[in-house]
């Protein structure tokens, strides 16, 4: 199958390949996969406390279209707010990369990865805030020997 110029370009020079510390409270990790092709894609976003995406890294084991889709979204989300990043659709990704119909699921995967990473960040933050307020609500429990 013929890949578009843009897919080849991203495949040969993938942007932002790598990983971040997934324990970092400001890092959201999205791990998604498509059983149709056996691909696995990890997208990590470093998000500031005010919800701006400062950095993005990805690691994808899959076909050229899956690699290009994830490489592209790391470029797109950087500098965006979380609210703007979740608006990115697979259609935009597929259009930018001129993906053929059989490869649309690669762009779906990339969209899902963004959403999963942001959800992970938000869940972490909620948990952290929950943990921070718990001792204040019930101070008596921690002092018991």
């Amino acid at each position: 199958m013929a890949y578009s110029e843009k897919v080849i370009e991203h495949y040969e020079n993938p942007r932002n390949v790598g990983s971040m510390d997934k324990e970092d409270p400001n890092v959201g990790t999205g791990l998604v996969g498509a059983p149709a092709c056996g691909d696995v894609m990890r997208l990590q976003l470093k998000i500031s406390d005010d919800g701006m995406i400062q950095d993005a890294k990805f690691k994808t084991f899959g076909c050229g279209s899956a690699i290009a889709s994830s490489s592209l979204v790391t470029e797109w989300v950087k500098g965006k707010s979380v609210d703007d990043a979740v608006q990115i659709t697979n259609k935009e990704i597929a259009k930018e990369l001129s993906l053929p119909p059989v490869k649309i699921h690669c762009s779906v995967l990339a969209e899902d990865a963004i959403k999963a990473a942001i959800k992970d960040f938000q869940e972490k933050r909620a948990k952290r805030q929950g943990a921070a307020t718990t001792p204040a609500v019930s101070p008596s429990t921690s002092t018991q020997p």
Partner: peptide, 29 residues
């Protein structure tokens, strides 16, 4: 149709399984 249908292809694999796949692929790399 797991091979061709986008909706079926999206059928979520459990996160633990994907983590295992990612880990093994990194080892292989």
């Amino acid at each position: 149709d797991l091979e061709n249908d986008a909706a079926a292809a999206k059928a979520k694999m459990p996160l633990e399984f994907l983590e295992e796949v990612m880990e093994r692929r990194e080892q292989l790399e």
